[in-house]
Simulated scan of single mutants.
Amino acid sequence: MTALLTVEDLHVDFPGKGRGAPRVQVLRGVSLSVRPGETLGLVGESGSGKSTLGRAILGLAPVRSGAITFAGERLDGLGRRRRRELAREIQVIFQDPYTSLNPSRTVGDTLAEPLLGQGLSGRAARARVDELLDRVHLPGGAGERLPREFSGGQRQRVAIARALALGPRLVVCDEPVSALDLTTQKTVLDLLLEIQEQSGVAYLFVSHDLSVVRFVSHRVAVIHQGEIVESGPAAVVTAEPSHPYTRALLLAAPVADVAAQRLRRAAFEQEYGSAAR
């Protein structure tokens, strides 16, 4: 199957702090692909470059070299106008649903904005908003409420509805459940899987949590210090990883049993501590 999104030999760097400081390399030759209708989980610790990759795909981080191709079109170097047009095709769900929503606007107004911007009439936009709210299982009348009137999990549902408003083919999910409690995480992840099954949307799912990535992903790519160190089917990479860094992530993942967690932590420190640094 032809890839929907392809990233080839991508390099991203940022200016160093202070005058004359060398530039900081964040991504070093990253290559990956996402097929239509699949979820690619991108997992790594804080500072690994995973969110920078997502931002580069969205046009929010500068690309020094390499190529990003979506549906056969090069994204790196696109002008602002074409980027706005591609908003129908590529959307994003951010980590913190509250700061990504306008606190002074009702949820209905927030969801209607991109629809009106694409030329829908007010009546058609309102009908689409009602459809979106129902799709993410929010109660009737939710469109008349402000973000502060929702729980964290409900606000993330609103953020998901906004990402789906224009019928995208790809959604970049940037740590979409890391700010939620475990029960709410499961509910939101189940919703994302349900939406994917119904619509065929593809996800690039960015996370630091290997267990979350295992739950939602078809394939997994592991990023460490700006480089992809391991990739493959989710069942293989998350159960029998070959790279020491991936094994360190697996041992560091929390488990419910306190005694087992203590043993895993000890094994992590003893065997793979240096690999994770």
Rank of each mutant, 00 (worst) to 15 (best):
A87H: 14
A87Y: 12
E89F: 08
Q91S: 15
V92Y: 04
V92P: 01
I93F: 11
D96M: 02
Y98M: 00
P103F: 14
S104R: 15
G108D: 12
P114V: 08
Q118D: 13
Q118N: 12
G119H: 11
S121M: 11
A125D: 13
R126Q: 15
R126H: 14
A127H: 14
E131S: 15
E131A: 15
E131M: 14
E131I: 14
L132R: 03
L132Y: 09
L133Y: 07
D134Q: 15
R135W: 13
R135E: 14
V136P: 13
H137A: 14
L138A: 01
L138Q: 05
L138I: 12
P139E: 07
G143H: 14
R145T: 11
L146S: 07
R148N: 09
E149F: 02
F150S: 00
G153L: 07
G153Y: 04
Q154M: 14
Q154S: 05
R155P: 04
A159N: 08
A159H: 06
I160W: 09
I160D: 11
A161L: 08
A161C: 01
A161Q: 02
A163V: 06
A163R: 02
A165D: 12
A165H: 13
G167N: 08
P168T: 10
P168D: 07
P168G: 07
P168L: 13
P168W: 06
R169P: 05
L170Q: 10
L170V: 09
L170I: 10
V171P: 03
C173T: 04
D174A: 10
P176G: 02
V177E: 01
V177C: 03
V177H: 03
S178Y: 00
S178H: 02
S178E: 00
A179S: 13
L180E: 04
L182I: 13
T183P: 01
T184F: 04
T184H: 00
V188M: 05
L189P: 04
L192Q: 02
L193I: 03
L193F: 08
L193Q: 12
E194P: 01
I195L: 15
Q198W: 00
L204C: 05
S207Q: 00
D209R: 03
V212K: 02
V216W: 11
V216S: 06
S217F: 09
R219I: 05
R219A: 11
V220H: 03
A221N: 08
A221Q: 08
V222L: 07
V222K: 01
V222C: 07
I223H: 11
I223E: 09
G226L: 14
